[in-house]
Every structure is written in C-alpha cells, then in structure tokens.
C-alpha cells in the first residue's frame, strides 16, 4: 500500500471520508503510544491517552491549516493530553531516577556498540531517560523534527529546547557508557 503525504489524508478526512483517518492512526500510533507510555508509565493509561489524542486531533482537524507539519501538530496534542492527565492525577512531571552526567560521556564511541545489540542497547538507554528528555531525543533523532518544531510540541522556547536537548544527549551518552561497561563486565 502506497503511503501518500499526510496532508492528502487530512484533506480526504476533512472532505468527509472519515475512513481515511485510519491511515493517519496507523502511521503515528506507535510514536504517539510511546510518548504516552513514557509519560504515564502504564500500558492501559497510555492506550487510553493515545486514543484520546487521536480523537482530539480528529475533532479539531478543521483547525489544522497545514502551515506546520501534521506530525508536529499531532505530537503537540499528544504531549499536552498526557501532561494534562498527569496534572489531573497530581503527579509531578519529573524523573524518578536522575541520571548524573559524567565527563567521559563525550568520549563515548558509538561504533563500539556491537551491531547485533544496538537495538536492545538503545531501547534500554532511552527507557532510562526522564520523560521530557526522552520526548526531545525521540522527536529530534527518531522523528527528525527541527528545534523549532520541538519547541512547538513541548511549549519550550527554542533556546531552552536546545539546552535541554544538549543535556539529554549527554545523559544518553552517560547511560550508553554505563550499559556498555556492564556488558563488558559480564563478558569478562
């Protein structure tokens, strides 16, 4: 099945072809669910909030003018929906496990991670990042969103998003270092 540009499906849905919305849901469900899962830390809640995000997006689709990327618009809805849900439950949006950034983080050689372990290692490292930094890294590296787009999603200023992304990247390197050291000890 050939996937067309998001705006094509958005226009189809706007013109009354509701069934076309399933293409959008299929395309973005994993990333929307991943963000929800990271923030809410519970599969059931994350599914509910991911669903809620898609419904909210559907209801306000007429307000989407296409000046920004559809994905940016959808992620902003997802992010805000999850944060609002956390606030409702009066849970603070902070990490339970703060990672200390180490100097050696900058010296991490990514080529040193064995090819066959890369997917597992990066998943493990990402899971240890706090919610907000996970979202920043995910959007910047995985979704290849620009700093401007990330600032629109998260509501941060561009400079703040840059600083936070820099810190998140350092933390990720620190975590990757720790994982690789652990692996080395296991082998030895």
């Amino acid at each position: 099945m050939e996937y067309k540009d998001d705006n094509y499906y958005v226009e189809m849905v706007k013109s009354g072809q509701t069934a076309q919305y399933s293409y959008i849901v299929d395309k973005y469900k994993n990333i929307v669910f991943s963000i929800a899962m990271k923030v809410l830390k519970n599969r059931e809640d994350a599914e509910e909030m991911a669903q809620e995000s898609f419904i909210k997006a559907y209801k306000s689709l007429h307000t989407f003018k296409g000046s920004a990327k559809f994905s940016t618009w959808l992620y902003r809805i997802t992010y805000n929906t999850c944060i609002s849900e956390l606030r409702k439950r009066k849970v603070h949006f902070t990490s339970t496990e703060e990672v200390q950034i180490k100097d050696e983080a900058q010296e991490m050689n990514l080529d040193g991670i064995p090819e066959e372990n890369r997917a597992v290692v990066i998943k493990e490292a990402m899971s240890r990042l706090p919610e907000d930094e996970y979202t920043l890294v995910l959007l910047y590296y995985f979704e290849e969103q620009s700093i401007d787009e990330i600032s629109r999603v998260t509501g941060l200023s561009e400079s703040n998003a840059k600083v936070k992304l820099f810190r998140a990247r350092k933390k990720l390197y620190t975590i990757l270092n720790e994982i690789m050291k652990d692996e080395l000890y296991t082998i030895l």
């Binding site: 509701t18 890369r118 997917a119």
Partner: peptide, 30 residues
C-alpha cells in the same frame, strides 16, 4: 552517528486492535 543509532529504536506498540478502536470512537463522535 547517534541519529543513525536512534533510527534503530524499536517503539512501544499498542494492542493490535488500537486503530479499530480509535475508528469506532471516531464513528461515535461523528
């Protein structure tokens, strides 16, 4: 290099009937 590495990231996946459930709710909303 980090970007290439992160592209290998496997995302969390919702249940198989997720799209169906969303579409059912879309119909209800309509």
């Amino acid at each position: 290099k980090l970007k290439v590495l992160l592209q290998k990231l496997e995302l969390e996946k919702p249940d198989n009937d997720f799209t169906l459930r969303v579409m059912n709710r879309v119909v209800v909303e309509d």
